[in-house]
Amino acid sequence: MKLPSFKICLWLALGLAATVPTVRAQQNQQPDASAIAAADDDEYAVVRVYDPLEPFNRTMFKFNNGLYDYVLRPVSKSYVKVVPAPARDGLVNFFANLRYPIRLVSDLLQGKFKRAGLETGKFYVNTIAGLGGFIRISNDVPSLATVPSEDLGQTFGVWGFHKGPYLVLPVLGPGTVRDTAGLMGDYFLNPLHWNQLEHVNGYHWWWDTTVQATDTISTLPFLLSLYDEEKKSALDPYVAVRSAYIQYRDAAVKQ
């Protein structure tokens, strides 16, 4: 493992940097303002991202920007206009609840058995008391309100797999090779892709398509607002999104 040794070096370096002003402060009796300032400058190391595919990624990033602005945003706007807010929240909750197998399997593969139990409790509470998952009743149960949600990408991270290169995928957006592999596994764990509707009388192929499209569209308003905020406050949107994605996923793996 490369990562821990790198971290140790970083902490050692930070520790050394921190002792310099202390020593100087003791000599001068008073903390030297410039010494404190110098320690401040070095406190945040640049988030390191392995991005050998940057030219490709930047092209994909631009392509996605266009897709969001000219295709997904109009879709999202009409959806918000047509469907009232409670129904929109209900749909988001329903599809999130349905993805329970992804969270359960990931918890089990990481050996987080207590969390697997909590996820199961959440699934039953929301499915039965929350009318099929449309109402997230679990938010009112303190022990179930903040269960960190796991996926296979995080599982690979916990197992110590390297992230691999940063990878911006068309439509899906930022990711890494590790998270993309996780996403493929998640796809098969999602009941939406189990073709269960085929067993219903009078099945048409477009049933599955409609359900899957509804899932995607229901998440759009939130994702686009997140994306807009990130883009508006960014000085270099590509670097900003990349840094935010890597930090977010690193934090999720640690949880």
Partner: peptide, 17 residues
């Protein structure tokens, strides 16, 4: 916010600039 530090995020952008 959700593991994303505001300073670290700008630190990356400022560094490349």
């Amino acid at each position: 916010i959700e593991g994303v530090s505001m300073i670290a995020n700008y630190r990356s952008q400022f560094d490349s600039l």
